[in-house]
Amino acid sequence: MPYPELMIKPMRDELVMAGMEELRTVEQVEAFLSPQEGTALLVINSVCGCAAGQARPGVRSALESAVKPDRLGTVFAGQDVEAAARARQYFADIPPSSPSIALFKDGELAYFVPRHRIENRSAEEVAADLIGAFDRLCGAVAAS
């Protein structure tokens, strides 16, 4: 059951203010993930403070890196149910978890952080992992 929108708005805003496009409909998800070129970061946002409390600041910190994905998007699990379900179809072999973070390169899933790799870790550790993935997959060398 979705939480009151008033309660989760700050959780949405935290990523939107970091430059992420909020994907609230199936159509928005498809438009974001369908391009087969470039890199795209998709954050499956969630309410749960056990992991999302580190995920969002970790993502924000990572996005301050010089190297970052071409496209930045987020869906909110449990809130925008249809949009989140559509997003997960792009990595259907991976068990659903939220929060989680997916990095696509040229239309293919290239890097994934499931919830259990966020729990019990600091935002700095989450950011460091993401920055490493950005450097490997989104840098000029990786793109050439």
């Binding site: 068990p95 994934f112 259990h116 019990n120 870790r121």
Partner: peptide, 25 residues
């Protein structure tokens, strides 16, 4: 990558438990 759930909820008697460890570790 995690697991596909088979059960919504399970209660495991402590007497049967050898260890409880975070999957992330």
């Amino acid at each position: 990558f995690g697991v596909w759930k088979k059960h919504d909820r399970m209660v495991i008697p402590r007497a049967q438990v050898v260890s409880v460890k975070p999957l992330g570790e």
